[in-house]
Write a protein that binds this DNA or RNA. Structure first.
Lengths: 262, 262
DNA sequence: CCTCTATCCTTACGCCGTACGGAGACAAGG
DNA sequence: CCTTGTCTCCGTACGGCGTAAGGATAGAGG
């Protein structure tokens, strides 16, 4: 299922994302009351750690609080709610991305590197793929990522409108591809034996449950009749190998389209 | 947040998806005990109705049961759990898609129509965009959709491997684009005043919270400095208009890439 | 009739997010 | 110093969730 983010006061969310205004974790200069023992960054960091280690399903306010030696309610001094915390986590993780790429080998190579880095980021933090894309976050690091990508794509000379399309297409593609790879990893983790066995098991189930599969879906059978050859030189499990090759090929497809549009 | 689907017994899930074996909602020929008052399809239909009308967040076993005049626990006779129900909902909705397209005007037109139909489907049932893509569903209608798309793409003459890339790219693109459009719709619904105002409000917040925005993200400012012109002839709100134009342009980009790969 | 099975419901458990209000720390004003 | 006001942190509690366990009941086969 998808995880929703904060729907609350947009102004407050933005202030948190951009660390503007009197954030509780700030310097707290000369204010009455006890000094804050936590900072916003500590909370966001703990939440990211929980999600990385135990998955999105295990991310609860209580779990984050416990990791910091506090109760769940202690967090509400710093964060209006779980949704806003998710926004902060999302934007925080994006800070891991590089903000510049070498254009010496051409814009295609640079954009490919950007796409790979973003994909790897998603795979380091698979819970990001479960944060609903239906609501924008609009944090500083999201804009930084966009700015970085645009600085690479500007050298194509494309105008604003086609550039908007290209940017959207690239984002959608990377996110979707990362989800596919994450899926193959999860398949391996679930069975423990490796994803080739998992896939064979699935195929077996299908055969049992739909004996007329080949008649109903001839094109699918055709596509899968010659599976992508495993290349022992490449690292990672079988399905992930295939997904990675598909990633590069799909990316080239998009960039070919971009080249044609110049 | 993302919504997770069933992790349980894969065999059982597949049997349900493909309506194989002794499903409680079946004909129940000569079995002891009271006749089942519900069918699997009734439950899945009720669940889809709940999600369509009140959103994914309102989809609970209790809500689905109530819609059928039953309690939540009554559903567990038909469905192992909420995750499996989600799988069934997802696959059921895909049955709305056409299974054939006219290739008379060329494969590009046909694929464009396919992509538009899928996008519209997502927008009719936006909760689908919040079903995590990290786990595959592998239901009959998912395969039917794939088979339909493949039958269109086969006429390109592309081989299996590039076709796999193309298919993945198209799926990712359509899903991502639909999410963007859904986002713009939600923006409108949230404020009630229309998305142009919403966007201006966001921009205002940004200006407040990050006065140095233009210095930090010059490329973004460049991109947004000339907004896409509103075209009064087109229906729908402003942001959605823009998103739809971007959709077609991005799709053309991908298809150009595919054409180049032939 | 009895018996066995399948449907449906009641109850209950342990989670969740979070509203509310109290306890205590600390700065500023007297 | 004490008082006052404010802010942090937490204890408690509420209403929701998914669902495990077991009881009541309906109906078919003997």
């Amino acid at each position: 299922m998808a995880v929703f983010a904060g729907q609350g006061d947009a102004r407050r969310s933005m202030a948190l994302l951009w660390r503007a205004g009197a954030v509780p974790g700030g310097d707290a200069g000369g204010r009455p009351g006890p000094k804050p023992a936590l900072t916003l960054d500590m909370i966001v960091g703990a939440a990211i750690a929980v999600a990385d280690e135990h998955g999105m399903a295990a991310l609860s306010m209580r779990a984050v609080g416990e990791r910091l030696g506090r109760t769940a309610m202690a967090l509400y001094t710093y964060v209006p709610g779980k949704g806003e915390l998710l926004d902060l986590m999302y934007d925080q993780v994006l800070a891991e991305l590089p903000t510049g790429y070498d254009l010496g080998a051409g814009w295609r190579a640079a954009v490919s590197a950007w796409a790979r880095d973003l994909c790897e980021l998603y795979l380091r933090h698979p819970w990001m793929l479960q944060v609903s894309q239906v609501r924008p976050v609009l944090g500083p690091n999201e804009y930084a990522m966009l700015d970085t990508l645009l600085s690479l794509l500007r050298v194509t000379g494309l105008d604003r409108e086609p550039l908007r399309s290209l940017v959207g297409t690239l984002f959608h593609f990377v996110r979707g591809s990362a989800a596919t790879i994450a899926e193959s990893r999860q398949a391996e983790a679930a069975t423990g034996v490796g994803d080739r066995e998992w896939w064979l098991d699935r195929a077996g189930s299908l055969q049992e449950v739909a004996p007329d599969f080949a008649d109903r879906f001839p094109q699918v059978v055709w596509l899968d009749s010659v599976p992508p050859p495993p290349r022992p030189a490449e690292p990672g499990p079988y399905l992930e190998q295939a997904a990675r090759r598909t990633f590069q090929a799909g990316l080239d497809l998009i960039l070919d389209g971009a080249e044609a549009a110049r």
